[in-house]
């Protein structure tokens, strides 16, 4: 833009910057406030209210309490386990499906693809799904959290689009050398697909980490609870017994800085890796914007 700016353009420009700055503040302030308040003492939080830019009465007591809480620690460990195992299942299935359905010569490819995409818009609904999990004997087991969502059609479309964009010649020369499809997938396609696999791992892993609903309807055994269910008790249902509080006194609330520290501890794993993987996330969503 070498041209001199008109007054209208200047007003336009400043409004854009102002609006976007306001949006940034609105986006981040709630989380920033929670971080700051989690490091403040309870009495200072009450005194300063909602406007705190740096911790007041700095203390890490709330974090010590959180890390000493057996329920939270167990939930954390369970969630890590579900993320690792669940994401592995997701990636294997999605990769197999994406490879198969991106082979343009495969007989029956269109009907299979259609049958999968159809499930994005028409489902049996909550109750039949719930009943099937029960009929399969998966109720109150970890499989109820891992298998019903073993792959997502949306992610399959993203990965398939990526595979279809890879050059054909490599595959053909490998085939001439006598490689079968498993060898082609493992030795040729996968090494070229690190960006999309990173995106898939992250999409699925965040999904598992944040999921709570399946666990809430399928799990009764508290030993198996993922972190999000423990969080629901502490943050939403206000179960003070989770923090060793007096259950008889229902008006008693979990102290604010304890709540906030719990939020930060549960969100940190994602927020720490987020900046490093941001470019991959964006790439993944952009792939999806390519129409079939």
């Amino acid at each position: 833009m070498q041209h001199s700016k008109t007054t209208g353009d200047k007003i336009f420009d400043s409004s854009v910057y102002i609006l976007l700055t306001i949006l940034m503040v609105l986006s981040i302030y709630p989380i920033y406030y929670i971080l700051v308040a989690s490091l403040s003492s309870v009495s200072e939080i009450a005194k300063h209210g909602s406007l705190m830019l740096i911790p007041q009465g700095f203390t890490i007591d709330s974090y010590i309490a959180v890390f000493q809480n057996e329920l939270i620690l167990k939930g954390f460990r369970n969630s890590v386990f579900y993320v690792v195992l669940g994401t592995t299942i997701n990636i294997v299935l999605t990769t197999l499906a994406a490879y198969a359905l991106s082979r343009k010569w495969l007989m029956g490819r269109k009907i299979l693809m259609f049958s999968i995409v159809f499930t994005m818009f028409f489902t049996g609904g909550l109750i039949p799904n719930y009943m099937i999990v029960q009929q399969l004997g998966m109720y109150n087991t970890i499989w109820a959290l891992l298998l019903p969502g073993a792959m997502s059609a949306w992610n399959l479309i993203l990965m398939r689009t990526y595979f279809m964009g890879l050059p054909n010649s490599l595959e053909e020369s490998a085939r001439i050398d006598g490689a079968n499809d498993f060898q082609i997938l493992l030795r040729i396609i996968l090494p070229l697909s690190k960006p999309i696999i990173a995106v898939m791992v992250l999409f699925y892993a965040v999904g598992h980490w944040n999921s709570w609903f399946a666990a809430s309807i399928y799990l009764q055994n508290r030993e198996l609870y993922p972190l999000q269910l423990i969080l629901r008790e502490i943050l939403i249902q206000g179960r003070v017994s989770d923090f060793g509080g007096d259950t008889a006194n229902v008006t008693h609330q979990v102290a604010k800085n304890l709540k906030y520290a719990t939020i930060i501890v549960s969100t940190i794993p994602i927020l720490v890796v987020y900046p490093f993987i941001q470019k991959y996330f964006v790439k993944g969503v952009m792939l999806g914007s390519l129409k079939e």
Partner: peptide, 21 residues
């Protein structure tokens, strides 16, 4: 702007509702 406005997307529903509450 991009980095900051994407962040809320990654916060779990339970935590978001906890914050709202």
């Amino acid at each position: 702007v991009q980095t900051i406005t994407y962040i809320p997307h990654f916060i779990s529903l339970v935590v978001v509702v906890g914050i709202i509450k």
